[in-house]
Write a protein that binds this DNA or RNA. Structure first.
Lengths: 225, 225
DNA sequence: TCAATAGTGTCTGTTAGACATTATGGA
DNA sequence: TCCATAATGTCTAACAGACACTATTGA
């Protein structure tokens, strides 16, 4: 950071999209914007204008921790956004996406988990930021343990598969999913089982990556065309 | 953009990593930094502090066009960088990567294509930006026609394969590469051939995506572990 | 003719998805 | 007992890589 700006608030913000699974869909954390209460409610993503001597990642981590009420299980920069109105009236926002494990709850009326299909009350820029964050999560799903970070430490393979299905937005084949998981040496079984209603109880697993994948066969041409 | 900042220079920069193939490796465009010539040369990425009423993408496009001498064949945001020294002494840079087709040349001593393995003279922040840009290019290679945009309008399949190999940093299997390309309906043959030295002449192709890929089989677990 | 590169056909091992089957609990 | 879910085995089609072969030019 420049000497001039040391300690003073920056003319840009760090915005955090906190994501968690909730009621079978993804939800993001919104805070009430206590601007002039002229009729309809206005909401916003948690944000902060960093001081001049802070690193972006540290600020994002801090904003996420305060909003979620615990350290995020994963955090990553999404990009810079300048279009549209922002609660801070700054010209630029650096966006981050942060993951909160399943079951993370908030308290109070001014901080809520809202399903991503209904972001009414959010400003233009922050709505674009949420879309960018969700795209970033999907794009990085195969490289980072995102699905695992949205689950508690112990989980069933069906829960893990459902998390992947939720993030990808499509169904997966059970046998294939487990075969690929096995081959990747990413999980190890615990000696616990969980019984939910009817049906055979499921064994609990934990995330415990062992080997490194080094495949990358061929090239993929997944261009939209 | 906020009313306050309209028309005035912003307290951040838009930095552009212009990339082109050159002598069988990737090169980025550097400009001479005419700061106090105290001994060793200093170089920098092209950058600009946008006015308050400009959109980021437009500024990046403009910076790229001026640096390359022509419109970039593809451009995309990489992210925001705040660490390390920057020629502008601003606290933040929004980085873009821009592609220049093979054969794009520069003129003058103050603007050169430098191979990515030797970025001596570049400041800390911009060196991190270049690394981020190269990573972004590799990560998006399967989703955007990056390799095609680094080639002229007509190219041989061997040239296309070599471009993929250059970007991926590994050799590819010729028959498999062509099979996958065929299946993706991305190119169409022209009625021209090119003869280079010995060997059978190669047919020229052009980028002409026809159908949409809709495969995405299974899940990939490419986590590092 | 030889060397070099383009382009293609065939074989094989790997993998994804369909399908079926067994296992194990609760109602 | 029936039903629901877990977990796994088998079959097949698609695909990647190896290999070999033909095609076509310049030296």
């Amino acid at each position: 950071m420049s000497r001039a700006a040391r300690g003073r608030p920056q003319p840009f913000t760090v915005d955090v999209v906190a994501v968690t699974p909730r009621d079978g869909e993804l939800a993001v954390l919104l805070e009430r914007e206590n601007a002039g209460n002229n009729g309809r409610e206005r909401w916003m993503l948690p944000w902060e204008a960093p001081r001049g001597d802070e690193q972006l990642d540290d600020v994002a981590q801090q904003v996420a921790r305060e909003a979620i009420g615990a350290a995020p299980s994963w955090i990553s920069q999404v990009g810079a956004f300048a279009d549209g109105r922002h609660p801070s009236d700054t010209d630029l926002s650096v966006a981050y996406v942060a993951l909160a494990p399943l079951g993370t709850d908030t308290q109070g009326d001014d901080r809520v988990w809202r399903p991503v299909r209904d972001l009414a009350g959010l400003g233009e820029r922050q709505e674009a930021i949420v879309q960018g964050a969700l795209t970033a999560v999907r794009d990085r799903l195969d490289l980072y343990p995102i699905a695992f970070r949205l689950l508690p430490g112990a989980f069933t393979l069906s829960e893990l598969q459902q998390m992947y299905e939720l993030l990808l937005g499509r169904r997966l084949h059970k046998a294939s999913f487990r075969r690929a998981l096995q081959a990747a040496y990413l999980v190890e079984p615990t000696d616990e089982w969980r019984s939910e209603g009817r049906g055979r109880p499921a064994q609990l697993y934990r995330y415990a990556p062992k080997r490194r994948r080094r495949s990358r066969r061929g090239v993929r041409f997944d261009l939209l065309g």
